[in-house]
């Protein structure tokens, strides 16, 4: 019988549809994997943002991947039992964001303050001499910033508690 560990590693190649360098596992949005019998797998997911329009698509991508490795009975659901927050991104996840040109979210201590949002680290040159232009961006999970040193605009994956 397939193990939960094998399911987790099979899911590592399922990427975020909006950030193709980042896997859903590293993003921290897959919250539970359960083998419920011979070829019967249950997966729980949780969205980064409640209004994320990609969550249905991501559920389908997870189900497709499980089908691909031969699982016959698949149930994928979205719950808020273990809600996402940006500290759930893995170390590899943070690296992947950077590789994609996005500033990773700074670790938070359970509180998001203006100070945490200002002066994020530019993913292009590493400078901290940056300004937040707006807390909203091209997707719900990104804010927009400007680097005063390399004079480039950049986006940050928002810290969320």
């Amino acid at each position: 019988m397939i193990t939960e560990k094998e399911i987790w590693s099979a899911l590592e190649i399922v990427k975020d549809p909006e950030i193709p360098t980042l896997s859903m596992v590293d993003m921290g949005i897959i919250t539970k994997v359960e083998v419920r019998g011979e070829s019967n797998v249950y997966v729980e997911m949780t969205p980064t943002f409640t209004g994320c329009p990609a969550i249905k698509m991501m559920e389908n991508m997870v189900a497709d991947r499980l089908k691909e490795i031969g699982i016959e009975t698949i149930q994928v659901t979205t719950t808020f039992d273990k809600p996402w927050n940006s500290n759930k991104l893995t170390e590899r996840g943070l690296m992947c964001l950077k590789k994609h040109g996005l500033a990773p979210p700074p670790k938070h201590e359970g509180e998001i303050t203006m100070e945490l949002l200002e002066h994020s680290i530019c993913p292009h040159c590493g400078s901290k001499n940056t300004d937040m232009k707006t807390p909203f961006g091209p997707t719900l999970c990104r804010s927009m910033h400007y680097c005063n040193d390399c004079l480039q605009a950049f986006e940050q994956f928002k810290p969320v508690v």
């Binding site: 943002f49 808020f80 809600p83 996402w84 927050n85 909203f136 804010s143 508690v161």
Partner: peptide
């Protein structure tokens, strides 16, 4: 649901 939403509302 509220525990999730309250964090988003900060913005």
């Amino acid at each position: 649901v509220a525990r999730k939403i309250k964090g988003e509302l900060k913005y």
